[in-house]
Design a protein around this nucleic acid. Structure first.
Length: 608
RNA sequence: GCCGGUGUAGCUCAGUGGUAGAGCAUUCGAUUCGUAAUCGAACGGUCAGGGGUUCAAAUCCCCUCAUCGGCUCCA
């Protein structure tokens, strides 16, 4: 007898520890050396390949080559075979310290121009690692002592990819090979098992299986369509945040999806963000040439600013917090699109706070408090805070150094006041101001920015915003841009993966499914479902006429948190036999009590 | 946008030059059932789109589109 499929995934796998490279000296050595072995193998099979860099990464390693012909997946097998041969030759790995001149001489001898460029950036001591006598690489190490220390059965080449030299798209396109290497074959097997597990959590797969959203070719890439179930999820999240915002004094606004180019010229978007905007809608060629006409909005800020400046504002009105779930459109490059985490049309849970300079610090803290409380309700714990500052050497920003320094100072004061852990991202700022960003990982460990708070002295300047201060003078407000979710689309993508599709009761599109044992119970379950719906519980009756086992299976596959089985006994006692996804069968519970428990769980963001 | 992979029924996939297949889903019929798959039948495809090679193309080649993994860029 075969176990049901989801029971498989619940079975506890054997505990195999899989340290990340940064946590294991041994893996650092193994992966460093394996990448050298791979480079040696590649150069044997592809003599024209030139080496560049080949570092370890958290789950493996890669090496970038410049080869006249791009590598394809099918080349990996041959390369791996060659690697096994090299490993089996038990080549000693020998470290040699050389002078800069000597390194340069030797690199020129083997004609590796990329290595020469790397050498220029190196500081003493310069070290070379040899694999036996045939191959060496400029490298800081560390390495294993002998290729025999590598286990060929614990090594696997995973994928090929294009990569730019020095990460610069204007420079050479290199060929990257990703691989992984472990101490034992068991670890490799566990690594592969976890990768497959991650694939099962992928929001693109679960979104389709659970019927939350679709993409349709005739609509276009990066433009999700929300189905009824997905829309319930979206609306629930929106309602949740709107309630929080009402409590905190936010004021709702609604603004259009398009505006004249003039608006975005004042804001600076046209100049600094133009490449990310959908093309101009112009009425005629003259207008097109003059960049006159309408564009889809890539951000909501200029619209909220126009509302602010539609009247003369008093200091008594500040802080003014204008909030909107505003849908924006950005012309992302085609290769960057993917699922819900990177789309071309998305809804920002946006708000712009207009504050006096004196209010800035406390309002900023209020916003961070809101964001952290939102994450808490959503049970999101695995995030990092990033201070996203400008790169002073770049020209992609607007405004004065003074404004930037003031804004960056405000953010720094806030995180230090809160004692938050954070890291700095230079060059990650918005074009108008620095940000405090909250970064999450998806199932495949890719990082995405969700929530963000930004301090902005520049747009108030450009739009000449004012308020009348206590003393009657005209003063300039400071703006805080903020979005706890970042975007509904990306948030939902991350949530699906965090929960593996098992939404907490308050978010589940269908909260309760009533399943009859036989058709005699149909009237009863339909009546109970209607009652639950009238009390704000998303309940539905299963009228499919399937056997109980099949109906349960369907409900489990739909990941419905509460299944209520009803047979003659339950009708008799006005109760429901409850089975939850989280804890299995709970037995018969009176209908009134089930309703109460559902309402309690929904109100408290907990399970049934 | 760049490098590589993939695209067959609503979904998951088999089919490598010679008459387009399976399971699930859907519809209909039978069954009236107590916690992860009841039985049977029917329906369903310009093999992503376009062009080419060939007596013959889902299969080989080219272009376009979409999608996936990276790179670059970003909520």
């Amino acid at each position: 007898m075969s176990a049901p499929e989801s029971a498989d995934s619940r079975q506890q796998p054997e505990k195999i520890s899989l340290p990340r490279t940064s946590e294991s000296e041994s893996l650092k050595k193994i992966r460093h050396t394996t990448s050298h072995v791979m480079a040696m193998a590649v150069q044997k099979l592809f003599p024209k390949a030139q080496v560049t860099i080949g570092p370890w990464i958290e789950n493996g390693f890669y090496y970038d080559f410049d080869n006249p012909e791009p590598f394809a997946e099918k080349d990996l097998k041959a390369i791996q075979k060659e690697m096994v041969k090299i490993i089996n030759r038990k080549l000693p790995v020998i470290r040699e310290e050389v002078s800069r001149e000597e390194a340069e001489r030797r690199i020129k001898e083997i004609n590796e121009p990329y290595k020469l460029e790397i050498l220029e950036g190196l500081t003493e001591p310069i070290t070379i690692y040899h694999l036996g006598e045939q191959w060496w690489d400029l490298c800081a190490g560390p390495h294993v002592e002998n290729t025999a220390d590598l286990n060929p059965k614990a090594i696997e080449l995973e994928s090929v990819a294009g990569a730019y030299w020095r990460g610069d798209e204007n420079r050479a396109q290199l060929q990257r090979i990703y691989g992984t290497a472990w101490e034992t074959p068991e670890q490799l097997a566990e690594h592969k098992r976890r990768k497959e597990e991650a694939l099962r959590r992928d929001h693109r797969r679960l979104g389709k299986e659970l019927g939350l959203f679709i993409f349709a070719d005739p609509v276009g890439p990066g433009l999700p369509l929300w189905t009824p179930k997905g829309t319930i999820l979206r609306n629930t999240l929106e309602d949740f945040l709107k309630q929080e915002q009402i409590k905190r004094g936010y004021l709702p606004v609604v603004t259009p999806h398009i505006a004249r180019t003039d608006l975005f010229r004042i804001s600076g978007h046209r100049q600094k963000y133009g490449e990310d905007m959908f093309p101009l809608m112009a009425e005629n060629e003259t207008d097109r040439e003059a960049d006159r006409g309408f564009v889809m909005k890539p951000m909501n800020c200029p619209f909220h600013i126009e509302i602010y400046r539609s009247q003369l504002r008093s200091y008594r009105e500040l802080p003014m917090r204008l909030a909107e779930f505003g849908t924006v459109y950005r012309y992302e490059q085609s290769g960057e699109l993917g699922g819900l985490t990177r789309v071309r049309g998305f809804t920002v849970d946006d708000s712009h706070l207009f504050v006096t300079p004196e209010q800035l610090d406390s309002e900023f803290l209020n916003v961070v408090d809101l964001i952290l409380s939102v994450f808490k309700s959503l049970q999101l714990k695995n995030f990092k805070a990033r201070l996203s500052f400008r790169d002073p050497s770049s020209d992609k920003y607007i405004g004065s150094d003074e404004a930037w320094n003031k804004a960056e100072g405000a953010i720094r004061r806030a995180v230090e006041h809160l004692g938050m852990n954070y890291f700095e991202g230079i060059g990650e700022a918005a074009f108008y101001g620095p940000k405090l960003d909250f970064i999450f990982q998806d199932a495949l460990e890719r990082e995405w920015q969700l929530g963000t708070v930004q301090v902005d002295y520049n747009l108030p300047e450009r739009f000449e915003l004012e308020y009348v201060a206590e003393d009657g003078s005209r003063q300039r407000p400071v703006m805080i841009h903020r979005a706890p979710f970042g975007s509904l689309e990306r948030l939902i993508g991350i949530l699906i993966e965090e929960y593996a599709g098992d939404f907490p009761l308050w978010l589940a599109p269908i909260q309760v499914r009533l399943i009859p044992v036989g058709e005699d119970q149909l009237p009863f379950i339909q009546e109970v479902a209607a009652k639950m719906r009238s009390l704000g519980i998303r309940a539905e009756a299963d009228t499919s006429n399937e056997r109980l086992g099949k109906a349960i299976r369907n409900a489990e596959k739909d990941k419905i948190p509460v299944m209520a089985v009803v047979g003659a006994k339950e009708v008799e006692s006005d109760s429901l036999n409850i089975r939850t996804r989280a804890s299995g069968e709970l037995g018969a519970i009176p209908v009134a009590q089930v309703i109460e428990r559902c309402q309690g769980a929904i109100a408290n963001y907990t399970n049934f």
